[in-house]
Design a protein around this nucleic acid. Structure first.
Lengths: 343, 343
DNA sequence: GTGAAAGCGCTAACAT
DNA sequence: ATGTTAGCGCTTTCAC
């Protein structure tokens, strides 16, 4: 490979501007100690020539890295796609390139991706996927990230992790409480939960919010069906079938993300069960399509793109002594998929 | 920034393995001319130490770049998210990092992103967004990409562009024909088209496939309403409202992507118009949610993730004298949103 | 304020 | 088969 040969180098700009390569470098990077005059001239020349610095040379020479890494479970999942969108938007604005990697919610794979990002000398790593309830799942990653931070890298996570990094926290507990209160207020008592894997902090937190709301109403989640399946549309379908079969008296299903809720609606429609007349369904996240489903989905809106932007903006700040935690809000969006119970 | 200092270098591995830095380099990169024995030893040491090469040093020194760039309109759009998923999957498998950029369908912005990717010395650039019917829109990008290729970079596009690069071609024309034939076979004659911007080759091609099918049935698209709006859900809503108002005798709406179709269904539901009894709706792409809509959406399935994988795999091949063109197929997925016309 | 020169960590000739 | 060394293009001391 010789992608770099024959392209414009800093020395070309320096010559054209009639200055040394050092001065040209300073002028372009906005370092102090260059006359305003020369700075302008160099920049004009660079612009005219269409010069763009070789990122690798810059980074190798000890300049600031201009790229950040984003780890998602799966970019095809709208939740992560929207987070990525926020990261990309702010990244472009800041002149950063964003490398995105899949983890597939597999800690081993996550570790591999983290290593690759570190080898790429990214300035920061943003971990968007849910944490694991069991801190042990990510000890290796934690160690690697610690070393990365020690050598000047930044790490931020979205969600509750045991990684000791700056975090942007989706309002999972309060959101779970809100949507459960909504169901309770409608009169539901026999509520079933279509939960993604309970090993994920996201699932655990949403469920714990639900438990709080139930507790406040004198109910106990321990007496209600919590079906632990995959955190996907397919999981939502499986959970719903199981709920219909094993707990026929249920009047509402709370899916712990919209994808699962979509799966639930799909099964209910296939079985000719009216929503919300016979069974109410609620989701979580408010992905774009939620409002256009039929019936439109009652759900908890999380500001996904904002989560991404805030995670990146945290990553761009210098580190603090203690990990920062940025809480975000949620909005309960009551639509047509929930209503009073049938009896 | 000093992310790199203090991390393991190649020389540390070489010392530990008792070989020269050159031998270590060769052993790790799998170059020929190293005894099997030493190769194993070096790799073992590297593994034990957790050594990962500095990508910037490697790339600067003229080694193969390990990253590729992917340009999408907007990663939050499921069509692009699925393409990205395919690219990421194959990329991870090949040990490549993938940088994703938004273009927002703005040629200027696209040019900026291309320059950034080139500055990052990516091995290849994949352009996933639709091309423009007017070749003039992208002359600057074309020039830049030409220079990139001349210096060893690879470029592939998804869709019909005027960029002279290797291309993976979604089956837009034939898909447009298939879905239109489906509507005609059901008995529809007054079909309206909710088209995204006609400046996009994707839209133009889908529409031209539709025109072919109409022509074969003795009809002319020139006499049918083609509403030219944004290629988005919102555009689908606007188009549908306009169609209902201005062309009340229409019996079917063909939206040129699923997002627009979702917008169309949403408006029809809001206005109490039964689908497909009063108006049939069809889309294009078959995004994941299409089958779970109500009614489930008749659409043209495009293998999006495969599009992404094939684009990357083309980009990884050496260039050919003439641009390659890889056709892909489509599948008409007839679901519940289309049926015979009301009268 | 500006220039000269020493690396950053690696690969690829070029020696041996 | 292995070692030595000259850069890759940039930033950053260190002189001036």
């Amino acid at each position: 490979m010789d992608h770099q040969r024959s392209r414009l180098r800093l020395i070309d700009v320096a010559k054209e501007a009639g200055v040394s390569i050092a001065t040209a470098s300073r002028a372009l990077s906005g370092a102090a100690g260059v006359s305003e005059d020369i700075t302008q001239r160099v920049r004009a020349v660079a612009g005219k020539l269409g010069y763009v610095a070789n990122v690798h040379a810059r980074s190798l020479a000890g300049g600031a890295s201009s790229s950040v890494g984003l780890l998602v479970h799966e970019i095809g999942d709208p939740y992560f796609a929207e987070i990525a969108s926020g990261v990309l938007r702010l990244g472009a604005q800041q002149g950063l390139t964003v490398q995105i990697c899949h983890t597939g919610r597999d800690p081993d794979n996550e570790l591999t991706q983290i290593r690759a990002l570190i080898a790429n000398r990214v300035r920061a790593i943003i971990i968007a996927g849910s944490g694991f309830v069991d801190a042990g799942m990510q000890v290796a990653a934690k160690e690697e990230l610690r070393a990365f931070e020690a050598s000047g890298g930044r790490v931020t996570v979205i969600g509750r992790h045991h990684l000791g990094a700056d975090a942007v926290l989706p309002d999972n507990v309060a959101g779970g409480r809100s949507v459960t209160e909504h169901l309770l207020a409608l009169g539901h008592r026999r509520i079933a939960f279509a939960a993604g894997s309970l090993a994920l902090t996201t699932v655990a937190d949403r469920l714990s919010g639900a438990a709080e709301a139930l507790g406040a109403a004198g109910l106990s989640i321990a007496e209600l069906p919590v079906v632990d399946v995959a955190f996907t549309r397919e999981g939502g379908k499986v959970a719903t079938e199981r709920i219909l079969h094993e707990f026929p008296d249920v009047t509402a299903i709370l899916a712990l993300n919209d994808d699962m809720a979509i799966g639930a609606l799909s099964v209910l429609r296939a079985q000719g069960i009216a929503v919300p007349e016979e069974i109410s369904v609620a989701g979580f996240d408010d992905v774009a399509v939620a409002e256009d489903l039929s019936p439109s989905l009652t759900t908890v809106r999380l500001p996904m793109a904002e989560l991404g932007e805030r995670a990146l903006s945290l990553a761009l700040k210098p580190p603090s002594a203690r990990p920062r935690r940025r809480a975000t809000g949620h909005v309960l969006v009551a639509r047509d998929s929930t209503g009073p119970p049938r009896c």
